[in-house]
Design a protein around this nucleic acid. Structure first.
Length: 756
DNA sequence: TCTGCTTACACGTTTGAACCGC
DNA sequence: AGCGGTTCAAACGTGTAAGCAG
């Protein structure tokens, strides 16, 4: 079984995850982006829990705020407006539209690893009824978490910024026994892709800053066969591989029907006379060839954007075009969020974004912070229906942690500052909800009201708040200076040689049966939800994954290896404190919320007094709703979409390993699928600190009460031999012989099903 | 009977090796 | 011999429809 030990470098080292919430610039900084029940609950919480915004001493340029833009956002929006569906097959199917992004704000000299993760958007199972998606029950047990590692990883910031980054090689499958490393998903569920940018000081030491990006418009439903004919048509007209099905193609309906008729006719004729191959050729589509007109003209997509035959999308030609080079004007539809500042020293970490006046803003490398307004094209969720049906009434938030809305209201309870981390970053203006070094619990599942992906309130507009000012930021070049610095990756990290295998923590021995936090949270645990067959939650032998930082921290560091286990880092102390606060807030906000103690019980780290702040996050997470019986799901076909690009939750890249930051966790709000938000998802980097278990409050009760149904999965990684990342992985594999390679990129199983 | 999944199929795109000319 | 451009075939990606299972 592979564990973090196998991939020590995978541990994100000192995890500096700064979840951020993007709020309307004109909205009070402490107000959540989305108004939900949870939000209300939070607001009702004692004022003391809401940490006041911390003035930002932004130094964006110097700090290098990482900024990601979804290049083909327009295309995604087209699909999401109808209800994006992704085919999943046993052999694996690529995603379309593809995830194409552009990065900026990276340190050109540093190396980064890009990961793609697909997490459940909620805890519901869906069915396409009538003309919309409706939740019909609880989601199935979460499958092994797998992360697709971009084949170019690791690559320098200059590399990533010089081109469009495409994750087109990533494949989705419904084969739970998949051995090719494809991302395993359940059919008829809703998922949310999430991208991570991880600073890689060394291929074997992923300890740098980490930034996570979520583009709400990329949410999709998994299907084995398209349910919505509109989606089919959109795909046919957008996907080059499906040209054959276009009106002027050889495999369009007309042609197929003609072939079928001819076939039948031929068969009939055959009986009476020899078949005339020529005349019966089903492919003689010459009749349609003259139709040089656009496919769209032939299409029957009345209310759908008509793709351009050439670029795939007439209405948004660029969406399908090759990635523009850096500096090239971007899609107008794209909005940008300001980066979050990882406030290491300040107790509060929050992210503020600055809304741009409109979506006309162009962006170039230098201008990373343009925030075009999304409103025009994508009205507030409340006003516009979403293709993603709301599975359940909004009341769920109480028991279900809605993303942003739930989170944002929380004051940053834990500001874990890394002593070793030189941070010039100042606290963000906004209160962080919950900071955790192990946010997986928070964001990973993007828990949504079991039954309803309810639409966000009208209040949840996409305006961004400027850290320095509440006034709307004019369009145009982003004012970087005004944005909080997210990372401190400017200074190259010392290269750290991987410690000998023996030095790696032994997951098996040191970590008793534990469920990975990410798994727990992401699994959308539900008492009603059937456990996955491979569930090994109770299995003592199962691998568990401590917070990444633990791992990295535990790794021998010639330079300055902090001993987390033996001596709580100051940050830890802070986290502990924050934890308490968080718990309190969480408790008040979410009645159904599991006690932190229970969580701790299920996870050594969580239980650790040192806490690593991850507990704080955990505490703030309400218990997942039980698989709801058939939900009343108002079909909500078209959601307004959020900005195309968002700033990451910054995780300041640490200079050293101790967990340094705990940022507010903001989850993608399942109920408002299209709200822009940066989410921090920890599950992909399982970390394990053997020493932590010792700190576990063994007395933690009811540890399994909440997440017992979620198994701990071993870490698994597969990689494309062609990937530049091959060597490091092979090195790792070499130690454990569990590597899987394939031509589709590298995959990392975070919660893999048993592994070799 | 219905729903969902698997599989085979035809068509188009992509990719990379082979070939050719300079 | 090296380089760049073109050609070609295999591999791959795609949606559809039939068949199967529950």
């Amino acid at each position: 079984m592979l564990g973090v030990e196998v991939y020590p470098s995978l541990a994100m080292g000192p995890q500096r995850l700064t979840d951020c919430c993007y709020r309307d610039r004109e909205t009070p900084s402490h107000l959540p982006l989305f108004s939900t029940t949870c939000e209300m609950a939070v607001r009702a919480a004692p004022q003391r829990m809401l940490a006041p915004p911390v003035p930002s001493e932004v130094n964006g340029k110097e700090q290098g705020t990482v900024f990601m833009e979804l290049e083909n956002s327009s295309l995604w929006k087209q699909f999401s407006s109808v209800g994006t569906e992704m085919i999943i097959t046993k052999t694996g199917r690529r995603m379309f539209p593809q995830l194409r992004v552009k990065l900026s704000g990276l340190n050109p000299s540093l190396r980064y690893i890009l990961l793609l993760e697909v997490i459940p958007a909620d805890a519901s199972r869906y069915r396409f009824q009538g003309d919309s998606w409706q939740a019909v029950g609880g989601a199935e047990a979460r499958l092994p978490d797998r992360v697709f590692i971009h084949p170019d990883s690791p690559a320098t910031g200059a590399h990533w910024q010089s081109r469009t980054i495409s994750f087109h090689r990533a494949k989705l499958t419904n084969n739970t026994l998949d051995t090719r490393g494809h991302i395993i998903l359940h059919s008829l569920h809703r998922y949310q892709p999430r991208l991570h940018v991880i600073e890689a000081r060394d291929v074997l030491m992923w300890g740098g800053g980490r930034h996570s990006f979520v583009f709400p418009e990329t949410q999709f439903f998994t299907v084995t066969a398209y349910q919505n004919s509109k989606i089919t048509e959109l795909k046919i007209n957008s996907n080059p591989f499906a040209k054959g099905f276009r009106e002027n193609g050889m495999n369009n309906k007309r042609q197929r029907e003609a072939r079928l008729k001819r076939k039948i006719s031929c068969q009939t004729n055959q009986q009476s006379e020899p078949l005339d191959v020529v005349s019966c050729d089903p492919c003689d589509s010459t009749e349609l060839l003259p139709q040089s007109t656009t496919d769209c003209q032939e299409l029957d997509l009345e209310d759908l954007p008509i793709p351009n035959p050439v670029c795939g999308y007439g209405s948004n030609a660029r969406a399908f075009q090759e990635a523009p080079v850096a500096g090239e004007p971007l899609d107008l539809d794209q909005a940008y969020l300001t980066p979050t500042i990882a406030e290491i020293t300040a107790p509060i970490e929050s992210v503020q974004t600055t809304p741009s006046a409109d979506n006309d803003g162009l962006i170039d490398n230098s201008a990373q912070m343009i925030l075009p307004s999304y409103t025009p094209a994508f009205p507030t969720a409340s006003s516009s229906p979403s293709s993603f049906a709301a599975a359940a009434p909004p009341q769920c938030p109480a028991s279900y942690p809605p993303g942003p809305s739930t989170v944002s209201p929380y004051p940053s309870l834990s500001a874990v500052s890394s002593t070793s981390q030189p941070t010039s970053a100042s606290g963000s203006l906004y209160p962080s909800v919950s900071s955790s070094t192990y946010p997986s619990l928070l964001s990973s599942p993007l828990p949504a009201p079991t039954s309803s992906p309810s639409l966000p309130d009208s209040n949840s507009s996409y305006h961004l708040l400027s850290p320095s000012s509440s006034s709307p930021q004019p369009q145009g070049p982003p004012s970087m200076p005004s944005y909080p610095a997210l990372t401190q990756s400017d200074s190259p990290h010392p290269l750290i040689s991987p410690p000998p295998p023996s030095t790696y923590p032994s997951l098996h021995s040191s970590v008793p049966s534990l469920s990975h936090p990410s798994i727990l949270s992401s699994s959308l645990p539900s008492s009603n939800v059937p456990s996955a067959p491979n569930e090994i939650n109770s299995a003592p032998t199962s691998c568990s994954f401590p917070p990444p930082n633990h791992v990295s921290s535990s790794l021998p560091n010639p330079v300055a290896p902090p001993s987390i286990t033996s001596q709580p880092h100051p940050s830890i102390i802070n986290s502990t404190n924050s934890l308490v606060l968080n718990q309190a807030s969480a408790t008040s906000a979410f009645p159904s919320f599991p006690s932190s103690s229970s969580l701790h019980a299920s996870h050594p780290i969580l239980g650790s007094s040192a806490g690593y702040a991850l507990t704080s996050s955990t505490a703030s997470f309400p218990t997942l709703p039980p698989a709801a019986p058939p939900h009343h799901v108002p079909s909500v076909p078209n959601h307004p979409l959020p900005p195309a690009s968002y700033l990451p939750f910054a995780s300041p890249s640490p200079s050293s390993y101790p967990p340094s930051e705990i940022g507010p966790f903001s989850q993608f709000n399942p109920s408002s699928p299209y709200l822009p938000e940066m989410v921090h998802h920890p599950p992909l980097m399982p970390a394990l600190d053997p020493s932590l278990p010792s700190c576990l409050p063994s007395s933690s009760p009811a540890s399994n009460s909440l997440y017992s149904s979620f198994p701990s999965y071993p870490l698994r990684m597969c990689q494309d031999p062609r990937s530049s990342f091959a060597i490091p992985l092979r090195h790792i594999y070499g130690q454990h012989r569990h590597g899987h390679t394939h031509g589709q990129g590298a995959y990392l199983d975070i919660g893999g099903r048993g592994l070799l």
